[in-house]
């Protein structure tokens, strides 16, 4: 599989689609910057994990999904995955500020957001839990024979959880239609990969379960998308799971209260300068002859949408007191 991928590493597309990717990545970037700002103003509380730097992963993978059938699940660093679906930034931001108009009525917050309408199943706060849950979503696809697959994201830190391997085993044994996507952003909170992992080449970690792995540059949206084409085709052909390792980087702290003493500022700066996914896509677009002005236009539009989402999230009302008691159970007993 890696070989197929090596033959052609970058997805071939025209200006129009690449512009879409660019715009989507930029939306995530600006949204997250704004979220950081609102956090600083005390409008967002608790834990808030930003996706800045990792944008190409969600956009590259999710653009290859069949949204009629496929499902997605991830951990708490979930804003980008929701924006990738085109879900209205207003209701995501309003969830971050804990408002009734938020996608979880303000009861889930940054880490717990869902959209059953888009087959996006969260947004889970327990590191690694989304992996077997994703296995279950894949089981449901197989059980109903609906042709869908589940894309389950998790981090390099989560990759050390036992339940991940329990799921690998069952997924491979039962040939579940699931793509395991490890977003290796090099750190789990303050722990660098090499300090936590005996095998740091995560794409190899499925080997004991006969799950083929792919190593992908997660900072290049076209490479991610091409890898997705290869991986999804394998899964859709009924051949069982694939494990993708997306090598990426988070620019910001783990969550908003991260003092960042475990890495140097130079390290972060170097990634930003050399392999930023948005700058990369921009360079590709300029090469294709898209004008700077057109890109500036996009940036302006996105800034406006993000500002609007922040205004909305700031001014819309908190949930009413009655919401405290709703949604605990579905039935009345």
């Amino acid at each position: 599989m890696q070989q197929t991928f090596e033959q052609q590493r970058r997805y071939e597309t025209g200006e129009a689609e690449l512009l879409t990717f660019y715009e989507q990545m930029l939306l995530i970037r600006r949204f997250e910057e704004k979220a950081g700002q609102l956090y600083g103003l005390g409008l967002i509380g608790g834990f808030c994990h930003l996706y800045i730097g990792q944008e190409a992963v969600a956009i590259g993978l999710q653009s290859a999904l069949d949204n009629e059938k496929d499902s997605v699940i991830t951990g708490y660093r979930d804003h980008g995955h929701m924006l990738a679906y085109g879900i209205d930034p207003k209701i995501i931001m309003a969830e971050l500020t804990g408002r009734l108009a938020g996608i979880s009525k303000g009861k889930g917050g940054s880490m717990h957001m869902f959209s059953t309408e888009h087959k996006f199943y969260g947004g889970h706060g327990i590191v690694g839990a989304q992996v077997p849950l994703g296995g279950g979503l894949a089981l449901a696809h197989q059980y109903r024979d609906d042709g869908g697959l589940c894309l389950a994201y998790f981090g390099d830190g989560a990759a050390n959880q036992g339940q991940v391997y329990e799921t690998f085993n069952m997924a491979s044994l039962w040939k579940l239609p699931i793509v395991f996507a490890i977003e290796n952003n090099q750190y789990a909170m303050g722990t660098a990969v090499r300090r936590s992992s005996a095998e740091t080449e995560f794409y190899r970690r499925g080997t004991a379960f006969r799950i083929p792995g792919m190593q992908v540059n997660g900072m290049d949206v076209l490479e991610v998308r091409q890898a997705a084409e290869v991986a999804f085709a394998h899964v859709r052909a009924g051949k069982g799971p694939v494990l993708m390792e997306l090598e990426t980087y988070r620019y910001r702290g783990h969550s908003m209260s991260d003092p960042a003493k475990y890495r140097t500022r130079e390290e972060v700066q170097e990634v930003r300068e050399k392999s930023d996914p948005i700058e990369g896509a921009k360079a590709d677009l300029l090469r294709l002859g898209v004008s700077e002005d057109r890109l500036k236009e996009i940036d302006k539009r996105i800034r406006a949408a993000v500002t609007e989402s922040a205004d909305f999230a700031e001014s819309s009302p908190e949930p009413g007191a009655d919401e405290l008691y709703t949604d605990v159970l579905v039935g009345s007993y």
């Binding site: 979880s104 009525k105 009861k107 869902f114 947004g123 949604d327």
Partner: peptide, 10 residues
Amino acid sequence: TNYMSGGQMR
């Protein structure tokens, strides 16, 4: 999850 999703998830 039902609670955290504002009643979306069964």
